[in-house]
């Protein structure tokens, strides 16, 4: 009985995770510029991955290598911000931003203020 319940929870986690990853793909295709795409490329995917890992862990219990699953989630959370920041920074500074879609922009004035250098 409990087995069945756990199985269903696992299925729910896996499906939700898959849905989130699919939404990330849709956003990647649909969003207009690189900065917006970063949101979907880097984000729903984090929760999606965590859900899928939980699903795998429950499904394989008790033989699941929980340690490895935890490590995957940990390194994902630690590396996504770095990659996202670098890509966002490069995108902004090389002008690959649709300024017509940006409502408030504090950074532009800041960059012009010091000539775009650090």
């Amino acid at each position: 009985m409990t087995h069945q319940v756990i199985d269903w929870i696992a299925v729910g986690c896996l499906l939700t995770g898959a849905l989130l990853s699919f939404a990330a793909g849709v956003g990647l295709v649909r969003f207009p510029d690189l900065l917006s795409r970063m949101h979907t490329a880097a984000k729903p995917q984090v929760l999606g991955l965590i859900l899928i890992l939980i699903g795998i862990g429950l499904r394989m219990w008790p033989e699941s290598h929980v340690g490895v699953l935890v490590l995957i989630a940990l390194f994902q959370i630690l590396t996504v911000p770095v990659a996202g920041h670098i890509a966002g920074r490069v995108a902004y500074r090389t002008g690959r931003v649709r300024h017509d879609l940006i409502a408030v922009d504090d950074l532009q004035a800041e960059l012009e203020g010091d000539g775009g250098t650090r």
């Binding site: 979907t40 984000k43 729903p44 911000p81 996202g84 920041h85 966002g88 920074r89 902004y92």
Partner: peptide, 29 residues
Amino acid sequence: AVTLSVIPGSVIVEVRYATSTLFVHVLGA
């Protein structure tokens, strides 16, 4: 910065270390 980056809807575009200022791209604002 890391927490902001992991939460969807915000991407760090630039960090000013000298003034501890984060520049965040907020989707949908």
